[in-house]
Simulated scan of single mutants.
Amino acid sequence: MKKIVFLFVLALLSSVGVIGYSIATGMQKAASDDPRVWEDDIAALESSWADAPTGGIVFVGSSSIRLWHTLEADMAPLPVIQQGFGGARVNDVAHYLERLVLAYEPASVVIFIGTNDINVSDNPASAVPIISSTVENIVDRILLQDANTQIYYIAITPTIMSWDKWTEVQAANAAVRAMCQIGSRCEFIATADLFLDAAGEPNKKLYQFDGLHLSTEGYELWTRRIKPLLEMR
């Protein structure tokens, strides 16, 4: 049943233009356990940021990072490097960490991953320990390069499309939050309070047509929550 629903969503997205097709392609790659399916995407990111200076702020993760078209303007004058690729799972980011993050010797790293691990799994609960342990590995590797790097993990967002998996999302967020609390260089950024309405459900105006990715208003809320933290460093 899950595969039928997944294929239906892919068909729906593919039918609504370039943006929808791009999202659908990312979702299709997200179903693969082989990080190498992203090689072309990673090479394109490397080319886009070939002249980026070191010591900036790397935003890395899945399509919510890639589709943040106003990221540079929203974070200005902070120097950002946008390393999002749609459909990314935690193991994909871990596999390409050297090329996406470490190569830029960042002062700070902002991470948003985990959504796709839960969405593509036949057993969403099984994705929770994978998310937690892999994010911990990513954090450790970043700090191994430079122990002064500040790392931020943006909580997995409650979404309309994945609302039936909210229990698993909360569990994954709690696990990463607990991991971040152990050290002083990793900060968990909670966001559920921003995206849930008075009834405790996802606020529709904060999402795009697919009920998964953020709208302009959604990114504005992310900016208000994230930018002040980065400015403090």
Results as ranks from 00 to 15, higher is better:
Ala11Leu: 14
Thr149Asp: 13
Ala103Ile: 06
Ile19Tyr: 14
Asn123Ala: 15
Leu100Asn: 02
Ile42Met: 11
Tyr21Gln: 13
Thr167Gln: 14
Ser63Leu: 00
Asp140Pro: 01
Glu136Pro: 03
Gly55Arg: 02
Glu220Ala: 15
Glu98Ile: 08
Phe8Gln: 09
Glu46Met: 15
Thr134His: 08
Ala155His: 01
Gln208Val: 08
Ser133Tyr: 06
Tyr21Ile: 05
Leu221Cys: 01
Asp34Phe: 03
Tyr96Ala: 07
Lys3Ile: 02
Phe188Pro: 04
Gln28Cys: 10
Glu136Thr: 08
Val58Gln: 13
Val120Gly: 03
Leu67Arg: 15
Leu221Gly: 02
Trp163Ile: 06
Lys165Asp: 04
Ile151Asp: 04
Glu72Ala: 12
Asp74Ile: 04
Ala172Leu: 01
Val128Thr: 03
Arg141Thr: 02
Pro35His: 09
Glu201Lys: 14
Trp49Cys: 11
Trp49Ser: 11
Val169Cys: 04
Glu72Tyr: 10
Ser62Asp: 15
Asn203Cys: 03
Arg225Lys: 13
Phe195Val: 09
Asn148Met: 05
Ala127Met: 07
Glu201Tyr: 13
Ala24Lys: 04
Val176His: 05
Glu46Ile: 04
Pro77Gly: 12
Val109Cys: 05
Ile151Phe: 08
Gly26Phe: 07
Gly86Tyr: 00
Gly17Ser: 05
Trp68Asn: 06
Ile118Met: 05
Ala73Ile: 12
Gly211Trp: 13
Arg99Val: 08
Pro158Asp: 12
Trp38Ile: 06
Asp164Gly: 02
Leu196Asn: 06
Ala88Leu: 04
Ile113Cys: 09
Trp163Val: 03
Leu71Met: 09
Phe195Cys: 12
Asn173Gln: 05
Thr149Tyr: 09
Met1Thr: 06
Gly55Thr: 02
Ser32Asn: 13
Ala172Asp: 01
Asp92Ser: 13
Arg177Asn: 10
Ala52Tyr: 06
Leu194Asp: 11
Val5Ala: 05
Trp166Asn: 03
Leu100Met: 09
Gly200Gln: 08
Val128His: 11
Val93Gly: 02
Ile130Asp: 07
Ile154Val: 08
Phe188Val: 02
Asn173Trp: 10
Val109Phe: 01
Tyr153Met: 00
Ala199Ile: 04
Ile23Gln: 15
Tyr153Arg: 00
Val16Ile: 15
Glu105Asn: 15
Thr191Tyr: 01
Asp41Trp: 06
Leu206Gln: 10
Ala24Pro: 04
Asp210Met: 06
Asp210Leu: 10
Ala31Arg: 13
Phe188Asp: 07
Pro35Phe: 00
Val60Ile: 10
Ile156Arg: 00
Ser14Asp: 10
Gly86Ala: 12
Ala107Asn: 11
Ile4Lys: 00
Leu206Met: 10
Gln28Arg: 15
Thr134Val: 06
Asn203Val: 00
Leu212Tyr: 12
His213Phe: 03
Ser162Lys: 08
Ser184His: 14
Ala30Val: 01
Trp222Val: 02
Asn91Cys: 07
Ser121Gly: 02
Pro35Ile: 06
Gln150Glu: 13
Met75Pro: 04
